[in-house]
Design a binder for these strands. Structure first.
Length: 617
DNA sequence: ACCAATTGTCATTGC
DNA sequence: ATGCAATGACAATTG
């Protein structure tokens, strides 16, 4: 009011000014109402009302869902949930959330993992509401309408999280509902179902088809269906907001931030109810590697864009045809949605595929991250990922052992997409480690000391990691050491995408330069050593010469002394015509160049000199 | 945490 | 023009 009054009393000029300011605010997205206190209060009240209504709705839905859950029964053979016969057996022995979580190994073999059924029980317990019979949804239809159960903020769990129970990082198995929900949501089956629902397409193979047919790569008939889920991560994610079913493991890994809004349960519940029928035992969640990759990517995506926006932005990947190589390059850890960056932060370059390539491109909606040449790999980018090579590498093997279940890579279909690549590294953690050691072994620089590198033995060099991430079909050694012609021939034999070519070139350049640097340093050291040796020898020579000099000086002195005595002796023997000796003060003996000796009178007061020839003395 | 040595990488130069 | 080696400089890693 005050403001208004003031405004009213303002001069027209002031009004104009204010208008201009307001217009600016409007341009910035603010409306005039923003400045109206009354208006804001009203809005606040409305907001409260809305929240209350929402809560009521949520509660209602929870009840309904629970009721529906009660209707479902797990078919032991198919692993699907089917409508429970009316009198049907009671739920399995009650499992507390804590118990469930503790069992959440999700390993196929052990079976001690949290089963979907258990999850359902958990849900039931979590929401002890009157069960009202609800017709099971989507029991027959593969593609069930996927409920948007998860709140927009809800992070998506990676199947991998659940995969290898033991290897996976210790999960805080607390009764905490959030935890339980995380597990539940991360169930591969559930996600699969959601995915299928989202896709609205069902495959007999139980592999969700990409919503976008184009996503499949015609040229690679073997992979298409498998790939679809993987490469469609963004799409699926966006479609379902939080559902990452469609998303590859990496997606899950990346997207899961570990924090689940309390709201999630209700939504999730709905989702479960719907999807249970689609359960596929093959989805063990194993093989999803980076369960623990904290990811911000998806969250970012979610938070930053509306669902529609996300769809629009993230769909592109689907439309890209992937080559086999590309597929391989997409390791489980890879962030298909470009979550790479988040990954990279923690697992740089890790071969797990984590990333390397998750290139930044993915972040850009318009671009397909995996299109040929769209990998977006660049040295600098790689470097980014490598910032922490050491730690990364150390984590590398660890990651694999923890998250990558070789078996299910090969076995579990859903995962297969990502698994395609597995052959090399991801197959078996232990073997992989061995590989690592092996690689690092011959990776050694020519001139590196022979000292055994304990740590490095187990590690891949950064370039090796990169190469594996992009699934380069040859070894780094080959890339670096092959002669130019052979190298070019090798490159021509393999169809590599732009990113791979760039990486190979960089690896070769770096490798060559590394060797050159090592040689250079070796030479430098050799030069230093040589110069030091030369210095020593020169010093020695100097000493020797000095010694010789002193000797010569001594000798010279002796000779002078002898010469002097000889001179005196000779001079004393000289006699003139009268038989008198010459005075040494008046005469001296001098020798000419031809050896002739003269007795030369010394020049004293008189300038007249007599010279007597004493030839030869 | 700090330091020095080692190693990797890049940019530049010259062949 | 191109590729490569050599090398200084800097950064990262390691012990």
């Amino acid at each position: 009011m005050m403001m208004e009054m003031e405004v009213m009393h303002s001069t027209q000029k002031d009004m104009d000014l204010i208008d201009i300011l307001w217009n600016q605010d409007i341009d910035l997205g603010a409306r005039r109402e923003v400045f109206d206190i009354n208006h804001r209060q009203k809005e606040h009240e409305l907001q409260k009302q809305r929240e209350l209504e929402e809560e009521k709705k949520l509660h209602l839905m929870q009840e309904q869902e629970k009721a529906l859950l009660a209707q479902l029964q797990l078919d032991e053979e198919t692993g699907e949930y089917i409508p429970r016969p009316p009198p049907s057996a009671p739920l399995q022995p009650t499992i507390t959330p804590l118990e469930v979580t503790q069992n959440a190994g999700f390993t196929q073999d052990t079976g001690d993992s949290m089963s979907f059924d258990e999850c359902l029980q958990l849900l039931a317990e979590t929401f002890p509401v009157e069960q009202t019979p609800t017709p099971p949804v989507c029991l027959d239809a593969p593609a069930v309408s996927v409920p948007m159960m998860m709140s927009p903020k809800q992070p998506v769990l990676l199947p991998a999280t659940l995969s290898s129970g033991q290897p996976t990082p210790p999960q805080r198995m607390s009764p905490d509902l959030e935890e339980a929900w995380m597990e539940l949501l991360s169930l591969p089956e559930l996600q699969q179902c959601l995915n299928m629902q989202m896709e609205d397409t069902l495959q007999t193979t139980t592999y969700p088809l990409p919503a976008n047919p184009e996503a499949q790569t015609p040229s690679y008939p073997n992979y298409p269906q498998v790939q679809a889920p993987i490469f469609n991560p963004l799409n699926s994610i966006n479609n379902v907001k939080t559902n990452s079913l469609n998303v590859g493991p990496a997606e899950f890994m990346n997207t899961f931030d570990g924090s689940i809004p309390s709201v999630a349960p209700s939504n999730a519940f709905r989702e479960i109810k719907v999807d249970t029928p689609q359960l596929d035992t093959s989805f063990s969640g194993e093989g999803f590697g980076g369960v623990f990759y904290p990811t911000t990517e998806q969250d970012e995506c979610r938070s930053q864009h509306s669902q529609e926006e996300n769809e629009r932005m993230c769909d592109s990947p689907n439309k890209v045809a992937f080559t086999q190589m590309e597929l391989y390059s997409l390791s489980p850890g890879d962030s298909f949605d470009g979550s790479k960056q988040s990954l990279t932060a923690e697992h740089l370059d890790s071969d797990s595929g984590v990333s390397t390539n998750g290139s930044p491109n993915e972040r850009s909606p318009g671009r397909s991250m995996y299109g040929s040449g769209s990998f977006g790999y660049s040295d600098s980018e790689m470097e980014e990922m490598d910032q922490n090579p050491g730690s990364v590498q150390s984590d590398y093997s660890e990651m694999f052992s923890l998250n990558f279940e070789p078996d299910h890579f090969m076995v579990s279909e859903p995962v297969s997409e990502m698994t395609e690549q597995p052959q090399e590294h991801e197959k078996k953690p232990k073997q992989f480690n061995a590989d690592l050691a092996e690689d690092s072994g011959h990776d050694g620089a020519p001139f590196t000391k022979d000292k055994p590198k304990k740590r490095s033995d187990v590690r891949l060099t950064r370039d090796e990691q990169r190469a594996k991430s992009l699934n380069i079909p040859f070894t780094v050694d080959m890339i670096i050491n092959l002669p130019v012609d052979d190298f070019n021939e090798l490159m021509s034999k393999h169809q590599l995408n732009e990113a791979q070519l760039a990486l190979v070139r960089d690896i070769r350049r770096r490798g060559k330069n590394k060797v050159a640097a090592q040689n250079c340093r070796k030479r430098k050291m050799e030069n230093i050593v040589g110069l030091e040796g030369e210095l020593d020898s020169l010093k020695e020579e100097r000493d020797h010469l000095l010694n010789e000099k002193s000797k010569n000086m001594t000798s010279l002195k002796e000779m002078k002394r002898q010469l002097n005595s000889l001179y005196l002796e000779v001079f004393s023997m000289l006699r003139d015509e009268k038989g008198n000796s010459y005075s040494s003060s008046d005469y001296s003996l001098q020798q000419s160049t031809d050896g002739t000796v003269f007795l030369v009178p010394r020049i004293k007061k008189t300038f007249r000199s007599e010279k007597k020839h004493l030839s030869p003395l």
